[in-house]
Design a protein around this nucleic acid. Sequence first.
RNA 1: GGCGGCAUGGUGUAAUUGGUUAACACGCUGCCCUCUCAAGGCAGAGAGUUCGGGUUCGAUCCCCGAUGCCGCUACCA
Length: 525
Amino acid sequence: MGYNTESTATCYHQLAMSNQKPRVRFAPSPTGQLHVGNARTALYNWLFAHHHGGDFLLRIEDTDVERSEIRYEDQLMEDLRWLGLNWTEGPEVGGPHGPYRQSERLDIYSQHTERLLDDGKAYRCFCTTAELDAERAQAIREHKPQIYSGKCRAIDAETSQRRAAAGEPSAIRLRIPDAPLRFHDMVRGEVEFASDTISDPILVRSSGVPVYNYVVTVDDALMKITHVIRGDDHISNTPKQVAIYQAFGWSVPQFAHLSTILGSDRERLSKRHGATSISSFREMGILPEALTNYLALLGWGAEDGKTETFTLDELTREFKLERVTSSPAIFDFDKLHWLNRHYLKLATPERILDLAWPYFAAKNLLPPRSNASDALLQWFGNLVALVLPSVDTLQQLPEKTSFVFARDTTTAQADPENAALLNTDSARRVLQAFALRVRAAATVTPEQFKLWMNEIKAETGIKGKDLFHPVRIALTGAHSGPEFDKLIPLIEEGSRLPLPTPIFSILQRVNRFQSSFDSSSVAEV
RNA sequence: GGCGGCAUGGUGUAAUUGGUUAACACGCUGCCCUCUCAAGGCAGAGAGUUCGGGUUCGAUCCCCGAUGCCGCUACCA
């Protein structure tokens, strides 16, 4: 018996040849936020399942009761749904192989443990922590693999039974067979571990709680998982798991170990590198399709070697596990932003408006969405459309629209670049001529504005940058921004809208700016 | 220390699986557009494939070794 390379390969072959639908799972621990690494694992599982018309299921690995929290479980599911990664079997939807929460499967595990014990595939280990520590210390000293000596392997069944019955604490270990442990990895090929480098793994702690490596294996087998797609931090665990499959006489699934996602310093990506949780990306206004597209690209490339933008549907068609790279990838925020800009441009105006609104409401720039008039909706839509191409994330929108919301453009004079532009005779002449016209007309249209600027140009001989920049600074507080044709109506219309933070009209802006500007420039001269 | 994995411009991926000048995208630089910024369009710089051997007529690709990084080495997951 035993599953050598050939039988594993045969297994794979049969699966590939048969029409058996693959079944894959995403099995997170609810001990924290879903982060990009896990999300990418979930995505690859989902894509693989959907590409082959198979099943994608969700299982919660909450055997670590200390760290597991229900709120993280809820958050996890919310994040997955937001990404568009739905599942057909899981803790809340149920399914034929439930329950899907490991904490609810404890009976199943103990039944299986009995079986292993009865078959002599596993044994009780009475070694104390102190003994094990000593063994380990010695192994290090002798430059040998740190593996359990197997001291308790030799205890006969009867004695073992008796000592356990007498209340002596014991863990349960698997007997690792004396043969190399091999498995086929769809992204790395054949992987082999010598059996004498693998310790007899603990299956059940002396507390009676089974350990991760054991329960995943039992669950994956019972849930009929055909392909285990997970992070490569599990690669060294896999031989132990293979041994568990063998001990039960179960067929070993296909494995695919995905490389780690690194930060720009080549360290494992973490909070230190900035936002890494899915919810933080959502909060900053990254579109889910941008994130899934980006994550797909982190370790995979399309067959044509060129196309980079894919919707989830397109990814489903194109995605092949065989094309996944085995080397770690560095997370690049710039590229994520590029993709987000791409999808922001593709999104419908209605959707953008819905998504953008809360960022402004939170800053008290807009009323609650439910109170919005059609005129306000229209105006805001125009405003957002104007600056959308220049933002990486929705979160940047309020700042990018400060040209209309800014309450005090006079502070712009403090900026050295602005001051240089303003502290000239020509700037003063332009501003005075402009103010004169605004005060006479009270309101401004783009057509009027154009006319006035032409008049000022003719009468002062000032043109280009020297003509426009002072006006721009006076109006918006910045020497750069959108074209006046768009800017003028946005400000004027905005000033007539009832807003929690009213917008100043052109006239108000000119008056406020002129008064402070005149006094400050007098002082300078 | 032991075991395993990984290595192509700054970054992510390609390279018909051993065949010419190593491709695409992000980013960067410049130009065009323009009052300005952004967007958009165009152009350009940037790697000889971690290093050293070997196999071969020929290695990014196969083999060996070194180095570096990552993971596992728990009665964590």
